[in-house]
Design a protein around this nucleic acid. Structure first.
Length: 460
RNA sequence: GGUGGAGUGGCCGAGAGGCGAGGCUCGGGACUGCAAAUCCCGCUACACGGGUUCAAAUCCCGUCUCCACCUCCA
């Protein structure tokens, strides 16, 4: 690599060189989904952004452990279960699968491990015992367990807020708290709710405890990067820090947060309906095209979603893809090369937009070379290497499988039609030639005449 | 009220003191029987008002507008 990897740290509010705790290795914990609804494009952007980070760390030679949790028990899941008249665990699993399907469709690599909150109750109880023993947390006797934020030596360091400046919480009527800002590690079970036994009574995990417990379980006392959406900074990540530090852990060295997908300048909310669910958007564009779109903005910039921009982005991607296919059709083996300029861009806090500018340059040079009958292998290899890091390699077997068996048959059929068109063109019967072409185009197949004869491709 | 972020050409989107990132759209041209694809040329922008500087989109002061978080959030 020609430069050193620098990454932004939310806590320090600046970029700095990434120095792994253990040389040659990287450990990442990303807050994944609360599986209470199907994923929308905002959820999946987070998945894509951190997948690009992960791929780049791996490409940089780091042995990377990537943990992304599933929150499979919380208030909303319980509410949803009542609404859907199904057991809470069936609801959680249904939406966990929906997330998994979306990740797969967008070629987001599976995490090294994907822990579920409900599978780590033991670790949570151990953590609470430690926190109560050292006086950081208390159990008022009603089955709840709280962390006492006034006793923290430091708190709100990520969001840079002062405890007294916080607007008072809405649940201030909860009198079992010593301070209204104390947060629940553990919630006492209400009648009919799922619960697990603890020394303080049966109940279920608070939202924040699971991540502290699971990060420690898989990554240890200290790990390199903790990631998640920008809206998790407070309270979720602040409270994770509070819990883990109070338990004597060093916790995350660096915090990274992805910005939102917005619509009409505003953060996407679930009230917008179903139109921006990943599976709905995938009826319009392919997974690789949605990924290209979501990954094209810098991860810390808001991405203003629009179908127009999505379509444009998809068109731009097809242009790149088309180039690679043409090079491949010429018989060349396109390897994946990490160009030094691309490495520089990625090392600069994952400057994907700059990388896209490079790809544009290589694309133009490569197309020119092809037109001139020269080899475009160098450009194609650099582009493919870059696309691979972005998770958008069109030759990645994760994309476009399924229709493969038909390809040979379709290729033969269209070749047959194109032969007839060529025959018409040779005898200058352009009306007949164009009629054949129009019929093919009407089927959604693009036709291009090249010096080496016509070629076809499926139109989106 | 507290804490952050943003305002760049028709549109999208980088950059963070000095050669106009890049893409899309649009206009012109090359190539083509015509298209498509591709390439070339063109379209000189940084919310507003001051200031610092030889030089400001970039730094400083002030103003306006928008967005987010403040215990459900990717």
């Amino acid at each position: 690599m020609s430069s050193k990897l620098k990454l932004y740290d939310t806590a320090r509010r600046e970029t700095s060189e990434f120095v792994p705790i253990v040389s040659g290795k990287a450990s990442i914990y990303v807050c994944g989904a609360t599986v209470q609804a199907a994923p929308h494009v905002g959820h999946i952007r987070s998945g894509v952004n951190f997948d690009i980070l992960r791929r780049w760390l791996v490409a940089s030679g780091l042995e990377t452990t990537f943990i992304r949790n599933v929150t499979d028990i919380d208030d909303k899941i319980l509410h949803k279960a009542i609404h859907e008249e199904a057991p809470w665990w069936a609801v959680a699993m249904k939406y966990e699968r929906a997330f998994s399907d979306a990740y797969r469709a967008l070629n987001v690599l599976p995490p090294t491990y994907e822990p579920r909150a409900t599978g780590h109750i033991t670790q949570m109880i151990e953590l609470m015992e430690k926190l109560i023993a050292n006086g950081s947390a208390y159990a008022p006797g009603n089955g709840d367990v709280y962390l006492e934020v006034r006793k923290l030596k430091r708190y709100l360091t990520l969001s840079n807020q002062k405890l007294d400046d916080l607007q008072s919480a809405g649940d201030a009527e909860d009198t079992s708290k010593r301070d209204p800002r104390d947060f629940a590690l553990w919630k006492a079970a209400k009648p009919g709710e799922p619960s697990w036994p603890t020394p303080w009574g049966a109940g279920r995990p608070g939202w924040h405890l699971e991540c502290s417990a699971m990060a420690a379980a898989y990554l240890g006392d200290e790990f390199d990067i903790h990631g998640g959406g920008l809206d998790l900074v407070f309270p979720h990540h602040e409270n994770e820090i509070a819990q883990s530090e109070s338990a004597g852990q060093k916790f995350a060295r660096r915090w990274m947060h992805n910005a939102w997908v917005t619509t009409s300048g505003e953060k996407m909310s679930k009230s917008l309906g179903n139109s921006l669910l990943v599976m709905e958007v995938l009826k319009r564009v392919r997974g690789v095209e949605l990924r290209w779109y979501l990954g094209s903005a810098h991860y810390r910039s808001m991405l203003e979603f629009s179908f127009e921009a999505l379509d444009e982005s998809a068109t731009a991607f097809r242009r790149i893809e088309n180039f690679l296919i043409r090079v491949k059709e010429s018989g060349a083996e396109i390897t994946k090369v990490i160009h030094p300029a691309f490495a520089d861009a990625m090392n600069d806090d994952l400057a994907v937009p700059q990388a896209l500018a490079l790809i544009s340059e290589w694309l133009r040079a490569g197309n020119s070379a092809l037109s001139a009958g020269e080899s475009a292998l160098e450009q194609a290899s650099a582009i493919r290497g870059a696309l691979d890091i972005l998770g958008c390699d069109p030759f990645d077997p994760n994309y476009g499988l399924g229709a493969k068996n038909l390809d040979a048959a379709v290729d033969g059929l269209i070749a047959l039609l194109l032969e007839q068109r060529e025959a018409a063109r040779v005898r200058k019967d352009f009306a007949a030639a164009d009629a054949i072409r129009d019929r093919i185009i009407a089927l959604g197949i693009n036709i291009e005449d090249t010096p080496s004869g016509p070629r076809w491709s499926v139109n989106g």
